[in-house]
Amino acid sequence: MNSRDSILAAVARNQPARQPLPEVPAFVSEEADLAEKFARVAVSIGSKVFRVKDLEEVKQILLKEYSGARRIVAAFPELADMAEASVAPGADPHTFADVDLAVLPAQFGVAENSALWVTDTHLPLRVLPFICQHLALVVPQERLVPLMHQAYDVIGAQEYGFGTFIAGPSKTADIEQSLVLGAHGPRTLCVFLMEKL
């Protein structure tokens, strides 16, 4: 037996006894209107929030809010007349360095902190939410959960290769203690709470 195997065998013999997981209390939110709570928190951290009926309404708002955007990429075929709506699988991420606006779906949102769960299930390219100058996320209003505790219950039941929570535009105050937007990602975040997707 070599030294590596003897070390691993010693570690395996000296494992602590298994303990049952602790009981986690059921966390309950007192908030009646999750969309209102989500919007209030999202605005307080720098996002814009719009309640919309459908993707046509999303398109009209985007055309107004981002009229100067030169390159728009969207994960919605319904927006193909204003954006690149089909990204080739395996596309070189470096070719998206000039994206002004990315319009992407979020699987659900969390009312307590306005975090939106985005996975590679519906992303044309993983880098898009981070490399664009401006980000717009669309989430069905009925897919809001009150607290992060419920969010982790939802995530635990899903299968995905990549997932991230996004809340607000990218910001940091590490640079000379001045707030800088867009230092590590999009400068703005626009959230569309849609009645139905």
Rank of each mutant, 00 (worst) to 15 (best):
L128G: 04
Q158Y: 02
L137P: 01
I155W: 00
I131E: 15
P146Q: 13
E142M: 03
P124I: 12
V127Y: 10
D120V: 05
D153E: 14
H122W: 13
Y160E: 01
N113F: 02
V138G: 00
L123F: 03
F96N: 07
D153N: 10
P124H: 13
A151G: 08
R126D: 07
V139L: 13
G109D: 04
I155S: 02
A151K: 03
L128E: 04
V110W: 09
I131D: 13
V127G: 07
T95E: 14
V99K: 09
E142T: 01
H149R: 12
V145S: 11
D98E: 13
G163H: 04
A115H: 05
Q107I: 03
I155C: 02
A136N: 10
H149L: 06
V103E: 15
P140R: 15
G163N: 10
F96K: 12
L135Q: 08
L128N: 06
T119G: 04
H149P: 00
H134P: 15
A97K: 07
C132L: 04
E142C: 05
A106F: 11
V154N: 09
G163K: 05
E159Y: 04
F162T: 02
Y152T: 04
V118F: 12
A157E: 07
V138P: 00
L116A: 12
Q107F: 07
S114I: 00
A111E: 03
V103S: 11
L101W: 01
L104R: 01
A102N: 14
G109K: 06
